[in-house]
Design a protein around this nucleic acid. Structure first.
Lengths: 107, 107
DNA sequence: TTCTAATGACGCAAACATACGACATTTATT
DNA sequence: AATAAATGTCGTATGTTTGCGTCATTAGAA
């Protein structure tokens, strides 16, 4: 049923990026990681008003797209932003909207 | 079940914007409207590899968020980008990521 | 070694999204 | 007035996302 694959790959990439950003919990996680002194998984769950396993799932989605990295430190896992990957996706995103906004309005 | 409302309103706004952008068909529609000489609804359906009613539904989602406007012209409807609204959402989006990216990486 | 803590994986139910056919509405054309 | 064309709305089937409890795994502590 899903016909997403009928579209340009660059559109699909932007759509994938957007989808991951389309839940406020995931945005809140990104914000938390940007501000936190420490970024241990447990601290994130404490901060986000959702159950631990739910947060873990949101972390997985961010990880799967590469927006965050997790480094194992004994029992705990330190998560942090993958600024490079984020920059990469933002560039795609920006160039899409630059094209869009550059157009003359014709109707 | 949906707990989105437990988060900051600004995060919710960014999430809503992202959700609308999270399907390649909707991105393709925005692109088409930016480039098209004419922007009649039927032309959009012809261009997008999906059924007419499906495209109509995607148009509705773009309309509901205000990213596009539709003006009735007899039997036909002329759609076009709402650049102002788009700029508004992009500003929200950009300021979020500026904050994010400005942070020192601590882990 | 046994116990506890931190975490991810799995599985399920409820909600939401996608795609589309059938129908309704509105406006032009004959 | 009758017909056709352009479009939106509704219903429905199927697929995806969200949220969470339970379980498994792994690492450190007693």
């Amino acid at each position: 049923m899903n016909k997403s694959e009928h579209f340009d790959e660059s559109l699909q990439d932007i759509a994938k990026f957007s989808r991951v950003l389309s839940h406020p919990a995931r945005l809140a996680i990104l914000k938390f990681l940007a501000e936190a002194e420490t970024c241990i998984s447990g601290d994130i769950s404490d901060f986000i008003p959702l159950g631990r396993t739910t947060v873990s799932q949101h972390l997985k989605e961010l990880r799967d797209l590469g927006l965050i990295k997790g480094e194992i430190d004994g029992l705990k896992i330190n998560y942090c932003l993958n600024s490079l990957k984020i920059k990469e996706y933002l560039q795609l995103f920006d160039s899409f909207f630059n094209e869009i906004q550059a157009s003359e309005i014709k109707c």
